[in-house]
Simulated assay, not measured.
Amino acid sequence: MDIVIAARDLRVRSGDRTLVGPVSFELAHGSTTGLCGPSGAGKSTVLRALVDLLPHGLTRGGELHVLGRLVRYGKGDAELRAKVVLVPQTPVVFGGSVLDNAVFGLRHVVRASRATLRERAEAALREAGLWQEVRDRLDSPAGNLSAGQRQRLCLARAIALEPAALLLDEPTSALDERSRDTVEESVAALRGRRAVLLVSHDPAQVDRLCDTTVNLDQSPAMAADVAVV
């Protein structure tokens, strides 16, 4: 399989102090990898490090290659960032319609007609498993969707960018059992299409969805007064 992301001795630092890592892993096209570890080990922080979204004062060390290209911290270009997309734990739904939300990120990276954007949105909503539920209300407010639908809308918004890799941060942690199962079905359907890195606190979910796991241990150098998620 083609390697989409290769991390070597990835670390997250605050000044000279290492807060998370080192951790090394590869994400292959079409595979789903679980990022596991105890609470506070820095799983979500690793995801943010991969897309240069670390909080102020933290930096990434080690080597990161995306699609064979070395990505220096703070130097990634917009095209490359669109290839690795983070879907956060709490679904962010913007004001506007379902369609507006589905193409929100896409509008910023491509110049296309409304018809083309709508086609890309439909394809993404289908891949996210949401199309059948929203096809008749694309112009309705996205804020009217249920929690599970909002999570899948955020997934569709990421898929619309046609990324090589998706980083999913606890995508079902705030959902009821029925909504969780629906989102899991959408994530499972990504196998063979995208490289997926999944953070989950649920070992059973990792077993259901992931081909391999990467274990992130609590760093012994982490100070008790530093919060890492």
Rank of each mutant, 00 (worst) to 15 (best):
L153T: 01
L155V: 02
L155C: 07
L155E: 00
L155I: 10
A156D: 09
A156C: 12
A156K: 01
R157G: 01
R157C: 03
R157S: 05
R157D: 13
A158G: 06
A158S: 07
A158I: 02
I159Y: 01
A160L: 00
A160M: 08
A160H: 03
L161M: 13
L161T: 04
E162I: 02
E162V: 06
E162Y: 05
P163I: 06
P163T: 09
P163K: 04
P163G: 02
A164F: 09
A165L: 02
A165D: 00
A165H: 10
A165K: 01
A165Y: 12
L166F: 10
L166N: 02
L167F: 14
L167R: 01
L168P: 01
L168W: 12
D169H: 10
D169I: 05
D169S: 04
E170Y: 00
P171A: 04
T172V: 06
S173Q: 10
S173R: 03
S173N: 07
A174Y: 11
A174M: 05
L175E: 06
L175A: 08
D176W: 07
D176G: 12
D176T: 02
E177N: 11
E177R: 15
E177L: 14
R178Y: 15
R178Q: 15
R178N: 14
S179N: 07
S179K: 06
S179C: 05
R180K: 15
R180Y: 15
D181R: 15
D181Q: 15
T182S: 11
V183N: 00
E184I: 08
E184W: 06
E184A: 04
E185N: 08
S186E: 08
S186C: 02
V187K: 01
V187L: 00
V187Y: 01
V187M: 03
V187I: 11
A188T: 12
A188F: 10
L190P: 03
L190K: 10
R191V: 11
G192M: 14
G192A: 12
R193W: 15
R193C: 09
R193K: 15
R193T: 12
R194K: 14
R194F: 15
A195N: 03
A195W: 12
A195Y: 13
A195H: 09
A195K: 06
A195G: 10
V196F: 14
V196D: 05
V196T: 08
L197H: 10
L197P: 01
L197D: 04
L198K: 01
L198S: 00
L198A: 00
L198T: 00
V199I: 06
V199K: 03
S200M: 02
S200L: 09
D202F: 05
P203W: 14
A204I: 13
A204Q: 14
A204H: 15
Q205M: 00
Q205C: 07
Q205P: 07
V206S: 03
V206E: 08
D207G: 03
D207E: 14
D207L: 11
R208Q: 12
L209W: 11
C210R: 10
C210T: 05
C210P: 10
C210V: 09
D211S: 04
D211Y: 11
D211W: 13
D211T: 10
D211K: 11
T212H: 13
T213F: 05
T213M: 06
T213I: 15
T213S: 15
V214T: 05
N215W: 14
N215S: 14
N215T: 15
L216T: 04
L216I: 03
L216N: 02
D217I: 11
D217Y: 08
S219Y: 04
S219C: 12
S219A: 11
P220F: 09
P220K: 01
A221Y: 15
